[in-house]
Design a binder for these strands. Structure first.
Lengths: 254, 254
DNA sequence: CACCTTCCGTGTATACCGCAAACAATGCGG
DNA sequence: CCGCATTGTTTGCGGTATACACGGAAGGTG
């Protein structure tokens, strides 16, 4: 077990920016043997950063603020994290807590709905996640557990691996949008499309947006389904998946 | 001294940050009558910013760089734009060029597919759009024309106005994800999920991600559909819409 | 014409930000 | 015990957005 001691650290492979970031998320921490006892650790840093973001939003997470919160010089953080990008990537992977346990016999459709709802809840509890640059939301160890579970839910369906991955991506994307609407609705006074109508009435020329104004003129029937029901968008997407599966199954049979 | 000289500018209505941003996008420009001839204008600024972003990405668009590009002091820009947020919002609305003309009898499904594909093309031509903070992507005059057209395509369908808006939002969201995949594929060497497999083989413990590894082990059949086919995700979503419409129509009939 | 008001772009300054590099202190491995 | 790897610190650079005071430009009004 001592033949390749030093293999643990990632080699200098002239990696592209993004790829090296991903591999840094996966590389196991190398315990140091010499030198003073570290007062810091990657985990402590990331946890403090998340705490800070929870309290004041992601904009408050700067190296200076974070260092102060940890009672340490800003530059000390760079001993454990290659830069702010890695910090943000680690944050966004770390807040992807373990996926919920989804029972086995529940069926792919109900399972995926739970899967999506759980993710929406995650984002709603941490709205600042939506303010993270998307380039820092990368497949790390925690996030991949969600993807693994999604693959489990899709197991046995007549879909190619690539198709499944595409579907999972589409669902993850949808979750993002749904979570945004949800988060903005909860925060109130912030949803641009809620105030859209008022803004339009004030400024926009109906002649330029005839169909939009026509749709607005159609008063919402009281029997209309709940406007902010998360499930609506989910059902649309799941219906699409179901239709595709049915078509695929028919092809196989035919 | 007159009582309402200043009425042309939007009132100080204690608006929330976002709402005032939206209304600034819509407020008509007030032509100035006195003072030196302006060498700048909002349009000139925004156009120069877009040109800069096209050449070097959105990160290159700073007030300093932009001022230099326009042969002007950075602070001069603030005469025409309230801050960087408004600049970015104007940029993101301005690059939403006119939607394509979609023939009338084409049907909602084919129409929406064209609508989505056109948006994907827009983003692929301006990949830096994906790097804009999403809080600056607001419903401005140009972007609303797309929404107006989407409402036109949905006209006559048995859906409430709110449902249509939700659907349009879902499609716009999907377009974003699809465009991201497309843009990253074109840029190559940047798609984190392409290198994901290699990274996993190197670092990840198969026992932790059993279903993921199982799916990877299933060799892609050569007859599998094109992996990066934009249409795949679109069809899923449109199938979902179609299923919902069918269900709704059945409810009405029943 | 002269004056005044209004508006433009400039110059200067502040308060941040991420991060590169040289440094003293620390404590294990030889 | 010595050497050296590793820690957090110090200093400082170049970048960002933007607040504020200013002088000059030019139309409106006398």
């Amino acid at each position: 077990m001592s033949t390749d001691d030093e293999r643990t650290a990632p080699e200098a492979e002239a990696t592209t920016g993004t790829e090296s970031l991903v591999s840094r998320l996966w590389a196991p921490p190398t315990p140091s043997r010499r030198g003073p006892r570290p007062t810091l650790s990657v985990d402590r840093i990331v946890d403090a950063a998340i705490e800070l973001a929870d309290a004041e939003g992601i904009a408050a997470v700067s190296m200076a603020r974070l260092g102060k919160a940890l009672g340490v010089t800003p530059m000390a953080l760079y001993r454990h994290v290659s830069g702010k990008d890695e910090l943000l990537a680690r944050i966004s992977d770390t807040i992807a807590v373990d996926p919920p346990t989804i029972p086995d016999g529940i069926g792919w459709r109900a399972g995926l709905e739970l899967w999506m709802r759980a993710q929406i809840d995650m984002v709603v509890q941490r709205p600042w996640f939506l303010d993270l640059p998307l380039t820092t939301v990368l497949p790390g160890p925690r996030r991949l557990r969600w993807i693994d579970q999604a693959f489990r839910l899709l197991e046995g369906l007549p879909l190619a691996g690539g198709e499944k991955l595409t579907l999972i991506g589409a669902m993850a994307q949808h979750v993002l949008g749904e979570a945004r609407v949800q988060a903005e609705t909860l925060a109130a006074d912030e949803n641009p499309y809620d105030d859209l109508e008022a803004t339009l009435q004030r400024w926009a020329d109906p002649a330029h947006y005839p169909h939009l104004f026509a749709a607005m003129a159609t008063a919402e029937e009281p029997s209309a389904p709940e406007q902010d029901d998360v499930g609506f968008g989910l059902q649309i997407l799941l219906d699409g998946v179901e239709a595709y599966i049915a078509r695929k199954a028919a092809e196989r049979a035919g």
